[in-house]
Design a binder for these strands. Structure first.
Lengths: 206, 206
DNA sequence: CGACTTATATACCATCCGTTATGGAAATCG
DNA sequence: CGATTTCCATAACGGATGGTATATAAGTCG
């Protein structure tokens, strides 16, 4: 929970805001998630958020700043399962929690289809290049965390010593990205479930 | 090799065209491949193709028709490894050829990064919805071909009888899509190679 | 050589894009 | 009560978008 725009103690002078910033940001996230950065027009955003353009600019800066805040929210609310997954006791547990967490998210009917990160990291127009870079940087960080976890798992004996932890991290990332693509293309939960079960069956160990 | 616009025997009346349709289409493909359907503006396209807008419209119809023809070309030239892959004698051979073929394509420095199909199938603006549907339909057909091949492999004993061929098809598709996403995000060939080797090591049987 | 057909080049169209200036409305402060 | 500050609503901005009308150039056909 955030305290609007000003630090904290502002006993609001001036006219009070007529909308909830958090709710508006959540609506914006849904639009970006459905249409991507470039596909989401300001008209789409303002309509979904229930505010006018000047209000949006006053509260969030501009479209890019709004997207970044929406991305923060996405990471915070929708990607928290990743942190929990990395805390699993074994590498296999990490993989399982990661895939099942992604599966749950992608097949939740209240969420737009697909993954905001994947949607935003595929190539698009020139104006969105900085957006793309920001998203790629974030997912690189996520992948590094996974890699570190697998390196630890290797030392702990979850994997044979000749295991390519980097390859496994890339593999798990790829399965999740592929799941996102298929979810974005309209795959059913049953199909995604099958993908997860198969991947889990192929995962080394146990 | 196509015969321009008219059936075949046209002893071209009127002013002759000053550019090569096939070369222009190849240039257009590169632009769509780099920037996606919506990210590619008519100005981008005409500049890369070396022709003016009226010439483009006269030769290809409109942006959507141009994209579909570029997609045909992409499938014909860049995705032919898929047909060859499905002809491999074993299911493992199919998987290997599919992944290595994708790897070669994604890491060819002359090609734009990523996969045109994946780029075009992730959500974007409303105007591109029909494009998205067309691409999704094509990749669904590709997946079905792979599924049929694996069903056959199951009957031929490549897999144990309790194998989930559908799950394996979804899995292989997902790895390739994930590879495309990572390639689009700028992964090196070495990274993608590692992903392929790992996936191949996990693939069932020998 | 004309007549005809087709391609090119320039300029333009309506529409939408993200963004912002302007004027009034709603609250607190003195 | 002003005075002040902040927010909302309308409407407009310059620029870019996909798509075209018009006029001219470059060929073949009779």
């Amino acid at each position: 929970m955030e305290i609007e725009t000003v630090p904290a103690s502002a006993p609001h002078k001036g006219r009070p805001r007529e909308f909830c910033v958090d709710a508006a940001l959540a609506s914006a996230l849904r639009v970006f998630w459905s249409k991507g950065y470039e596909g989401a027009s300001m008209a789409d955003l303002t309509e979904a958020m229930g505010i006018t353009k000047p209000s949006l600019y006053a509260a969030f800066g501009n479209k890019e700043a709004l997207f970044n805040k929406a991305l923060d929210l996405y990471e915070r609310e929708k990607l928290d399962y990743m942190h929990a997954a990395l805390d699993a006791p074994t590498a296999r547990g990490v993989a399982e929690r990661l895939m099942r967490g992604a599966l749950d998210m992608y097949s939740c009917p209240e969420n737009p289809n697909g993954c905001l990160g994947v949607i935003s990291s595929v190539a698009c127009g020139a104006e969105a290049e900085c957006i793309r870079e920001a998203v790629v940087a974030r997912s690189a960080a996520a992948k590094r965390a996974m890699l570190d976890r697998f390196a630890r798992a290797k030392k702990e004996g979850d994997f044979p010593p000749d295991t390519d932890a980097e390859g496994l991290a890339a593999f798990l990332t790829a399965v999740n990205q592929g799941m996102a693509v298929q979810a974005g293309a309209g795959a059913t939960r049953a199909e995604l479930e099958r993908l997860v079960e198969t991947s889990l069956k192929l995962w080394p160990g146990r």
